[in-house]
């Protein structure tokens, strides 16, 4: 059973989510991946303002394929989130409320999610053409020179995701695997 949620995310909305919930997101997602995260971290190092406000926002780890004429974006599925782990706790500490990607997060990121009451969602990796249809508009908000790695504000409607890590320490990657695992010899 899917539920709908609107971004930016509130503390109340996040508190109602549990690992394994299927959710449809509507509102703004900010794309950022390796290169954009590196630049954001460098600005934080220098104490300079970021090109985009992150409080309450949801970052989508994605770099789309080129948009065809008349389309807001090309295919746009999630990339592997773990590559952003080194930068993520600092972004959570300044108010980032959600992330959409795929794959494991580090213990430091999971700890920062609980501390800051933020959630990590998975989108279905490789469902990039389907996910593109849920993107109604897109504009570059920073780092246009990075091409597919630029920060874009995506306006999405009913964007399908699954809660991986909730604010209570729940983790569907661990729980799901435990439920279906068969030990050798059993």
């Amino acid at each position: 059973m899917e539920r709908t949620l609107t971004t930016p995310l509130t503390d109340e909305a996040v508190a109602g989510l549990r690992a394994g919930d299927q959710v449809l997101l509507t509102g703004t997602l900010l794309t950022a991946r390796d290169a954009a995260h590196k630049r954001l971290a460098e600005l934080l190092d220098r104490g300079e303002p970021l090109p985009v406000e992150l409080a309450g926002q949801v970052i989508y780890y994605a770099g789309p394929s080129p948009a065809k004429p008349g389309k807001p974006v090309g295919s746009i599925g999630p990339t592997t989130s773990g590559r952003m782990d080194a930068y993520t706790p600092r972004l959570l500490d300044i108010g980032l409320k959600g992330m959409v990607g795929k794959g494991y997060r580090s213990p430091a990121v999971k700890e920062a999610m609980v501390r800051n009451r933020a959630v990590y969602f998975a989108a279905v990796g490789g469902a990039a053409a389907l996910l593109a249809q849920r993107v109604k508009a897109a504009r570059v908000v920073a780092y246009e020179d990075l091409g597919p790695e630029a920060i874009r504000a995506l306006e999405v409607v009913d964007f399908p995701v699954i809660v991986v890590n909730d604010i209570y320490g729940g983790d569907i990657y661990e729980e799901g695997r435990r439920r279906f695992e068969r030990k050798v010899g059993t």
Binding site: S65, S75, I76, A128, A129
Partner: peptide, 23 residues
């Protein structure tokens, strides 16, 4: 539900001539 999404994705990709995956 993942498999349903992947089948729907493959249909859209073929019809719209869009990449199945952005990568």
């Amino acid at each position: 539900s993942v498999f349903r999404q992947l089948l729907e994705n493959a249909r859209i990709a073929a019809e719209e001539r869009m990449p199945l995956c952005q990568d």
